[in-house]
Design a protein around this nucleic acid. Structure first.
Lengths: 126, 126
DNA sequence: GCATTGATTAACCATCCGGTTAATTAACCT
DNA sequence: AGGTTAATTAACCGGATGGTTAATCAATGC
């Protein structure tokens, strides 16, 4: 029922491979529904639904020309996702950080035999 | 049943606000299940399930000490998400791009009166 | 007006999801 | 051994999701 927040609907929309494929297709240009449906072994209504999900999430916009409803990408909501995810960058780069620390540690140890220097500036994010 | 791909399960895991809140909480340090449950008006089993979803998605790992199962963040899968999303950056920055193009256009036009330079590498279409 | 093409809506189905309560496991403490 | 605390499992429920087929709407082209 609710779960109205943008981030949730965006993530939900992206959690389906068909939908992501549709977005990928739209990266290279606008397309009609039947065009979008073509690469999939799926009926048109199914694709139509997927598109509506993307539309509700603000990830595609659609026009209308003749009996076509051309879709184009509108990735604005991805910005919020990107910002959200950036707050976690340090956590997936932690291993590198630790390797980094290990190397710096090794280096300083070789310079002043074996004294371990405490590196203050850990939380490096690059 | 299927939909086994990492990206899908990661996005799905992130599509719930409770789960994102749990991750946010874990950013500031490991915590037990009851600790994690505390801020929510929700039963323990519910939280337990959420945690399992996060765990299956590889977003948290858990230890075991006494009867506690301390959770800690493991944001590695977010890297893939981040990479995926970066491929769309140009699309949400498009407005800026077009302003940019407009300005460059204006500039080159003033230099060799009114000849419009075709920028090959744009990829904008709408 | 009527057939054709493009797309949506309706009705239906199976499965998944987020939540509950109640029962169960697991480790600790006397 | 028995009791307490931490957490999971089991069984269940209602509502969302992803898909189908069949029917309908909307615009075009004779």
């Amino acid at each position: 029922m609710p779960t109205t927040d943008t981030l949730s609907t965006t993530f939900a929309a992206l959690s389906d491979p068909t939908r992501r494929a549709i977005l990928a297709r739209l990266k290279i240009g606008a397309a009609s529904v039947t065009e979008l449906a073509e690469p999939f072994e799926m009926t048109l209504p199914a694709i139509s639904k997927h598109i509506r999900v993307l539309e509700r999430a603000g990830l595609v916009e659609r026009g209308r020309q003749a009996q076509l409803r051309p879709c184009r990408i509108a990735a604005q909501p991805l910005q919020e996702v990107s910002e959200w995810i950036e707050h976690y960058r340090q956590f997936w780069e932690d291993r590198l950080d630790r390797l980094d620390e290990f190397l710096r540690d090794l280096q300083s140890r070789s310079k002043n035999h074996g004294r371990k220097k405490r590196s203050k500036d850990r939380n490096i994010r690059r």
